[in-house]
């Protein structure tokens, strides 16, 4: 019997994942390695920088429609987001929103594999995540935003928040989604509370199957490229009659200000 050799998503790097998600032959990278957009903050901290800052912005088509895949490289600093990589993602999302407003929508797929904010860039990483969250919410008013979480890292920290904002989240069993990483929980609460070296426990608590059962993911698929591509197609098809509504959790700034002042007992 011939063994089934899977066409794994997890085994691909970020660039190859974006390529495999887009329609064959349509992949075109924007601000790729030769743009040499390295982080200017890492060298001073003794950390080697990467020419794409760990983020791949890929244009092409998906199901024949204009598309943009934003993929993070989990191998470089755990796929953590710094100023440049974050700006590449936020700006792409903002351009997609502009496309939607002009009536020429661009499908967006977030192929994240990321530990969250890059600690070496601290506040700049926090700001980048805030901008990305803002941009996802703004884009979501026009079209569905689809996330594929199927890499070796998963998404943690701020990137798990960005993922939670997406309309569709496709996961595999090997994927993980969590706010605090296992090691952080163990450090804060003790090994009795959560043993980060216990891999079955980590996946039982934060793995793709669990997150799907909890409703944090909208599709659970095998780590096989055809299955993942089909799930992405289905995610867009499910939202074909997408009705754009402002999210009730994000009211307009005036109402938000009023609520804030009321909550803190301040009379405007």
């Amino acid at each position: 019997m011939t063994p089934h050799i899977g066409d794994s998503y997890a085994e691909r790097n970020a660039r190859e994942r974006a390529q495999a998600l887009l329609d064959p032959g349509t992949f075109r990278e924007v601000l790729g390695p030769f743009a040499r957009l390295r982080s200017p903050y890492l060298a001073a901290q003794g950390v080697a920088a990467q020419s794409d800052d760990g983020v791949v912005v890929a244009r092409g088509t998906l199901g024949g429609e204009r598309a943009c895949v934003l993929a993070t490289d989990g191998r470089f600093l755990g796929g953590a987001i710094g100023e440049i990589g974050g700006a590449k993602i936020a700006a792409s999302l903002e351009l997609a929103r502009r496309d939607a407003e002009r009536g020429t929508p661009t499908r967006v797929v977030l192929a994240f594999d990321s530990g969250g904010i890059r600690l070496q860039e601290a506040n700049l990483g926090l700001l980048a995540i805030a901008e990305i969250c803002d941009a996802v919410v703004a884009l979501r008013a026009h079209q569905p935003v689809v996330a594929v979480i199927a890499g070796r890292v998963g998404v943690y920290g701020g990137m798990s928040i960005v993922t939670a904002l997406c309309n569709e989240v496709i996961v595999t069993e090997g994927a993980r989604i969590g706010l605090n990483g296992p090691d952080v929980v163990e450090t804060e609460a003790g090994a009795d509370e959560f043993d980060a070296s216990n891999r079955p426990l980590v996946w039982k608590a934060t793995g793709g199957r669990r997150r799907f059962a909890q409703g944090h993911a909208t599709a659970l698929v095998a780590d096989d490229m055809p299955d993942i591509r089909a799930a992405v197609e289905e995610a867009f098809a499910r939202n074909r009659s997408f009705v754009a509504i402002a999210h009730p959790d994000f009211p307009d700034p005036a109402l938000e200000r009023e609520a804030f002042l009321r909550a803190y007992g301040v009379t405007p």
């Binding site: 390695p33 030769f34 080697a48 990467q50 191998r75 470089f76």
Partner: peptide
């Protein structure tokens, strides 16, 4: 890739 025990090359 710039990962532990690895390196990235740009050649032109």
């Amino acid at each position: 890739v710039v990962a532990s025990g690895n390196c990235e090359l740009l050649l032109e």
